[in-house]
């Protein structure tokens, strides 16, 4: 029993790392994703955004992570800590997917909403910030929650650059104790609880913004 508790505590420390990594990455992914999707509506930038999405979605995440952690410091001569490299890599990767989710959300809005904003003389920045994006956010919330959960699970890749997340710690415990089942089960429970927490928060927000669901 003591072993179980001490393993839970040891893996629990990885939980904080996983949470930091996921939250940091989704913050970067969302901010950049929103920026990219708005930029897509600017004629000059369309190809740039498409190219970015294509490269990010067309290459493995593990490769992107390796480039950011191993290659870029080599090129610019500055070392990055594991958490920062992870947040940048997962955030950039997520931004392409968030931008695509947002694109579908924006395209599903009636064209008249843009036109109504224009006829009322609402400047472009405010139109996006106060009229378009709040409606899009409401429509894409379930898909966005899926993306966050997927990102949470993808963060397990951080172990390849030595990040001490839940997964990495469970492997260390397994190697030390020659016992795989228990540490992996604890890791599974932690990940499942985190995923359920994200889903719960998503549902809460969804219920709060459900005012326009019938319109």
């Amino acid at each position: 029993m003591d072993t179980v508790i001490s393993n839970c505590i040891y893996l629990g420390k990885g939980l904080i790392f996983t949470l930091e990594l996921t939250m940091g990455s989704i913050a970067v992914g969302l901010a950049l994703g929103v920026f990219l999707s708005v930029l897509r509506h600017c004629r000059i930038c369309v190809s740039l955004v498409r190219g970015w999405s294509s490269i990010i979605r067309g290459t493995p995440l593990i490769l992107q992570l390796s480039i950011i952690y191993f290659s870029i410091p080599n090129l610019i001569g500055v070392r990055m800590n594991i958490l920062s490299a992870g947040i940048i890599a997962f955030g950039l990767n997520s931004s392409a997917y968030v931008a695509e989710i947002l694109r579908s959300g924006i395209e599903s809005l009636p064209k008249g909403q843009f036109e109504a904003a224009r006829t009322l003389g609402i400047p472009t920045f405010y139109m996006w910030r106060d009229i378009i994006l709040p409606q899009v956010a409401m429509n894409i919330l379930p898909t966005l929650v899926n993306e966050v959960i997927a990102l949470l699970k993808e963060t397990t890749l951080i172990s390849i650059i030595g990040g001490m997340d839940i997964m990495r710690r469970s492997q260390i415990v397994a190697a030390e104790q020659f016992e795989y089942f228990m540490p992996l089960c604890i890791a599974g429970v932690y990940y499942y609880c985190l995923a359920m927490l994200i889903e719960f928060i998503g549902e809460k927000i969804e219920r709060k913004v459900a005012y326009a669901k019938n319109s």
Binding site: E115, A116, T119, I122, D130, V209, Y211, S215
Partner: peptide, 27 residues
Amino acid sequence: KIGFMFQDFQLFPHLTVLQNLLYALNL
């Protein structure tokens, strides 16, 4: 100045009636 009333209203669904009226004016 031109005002436009759309066939399908195009009210902003995430704003209340009063906010719909005031948003552009108070900007």
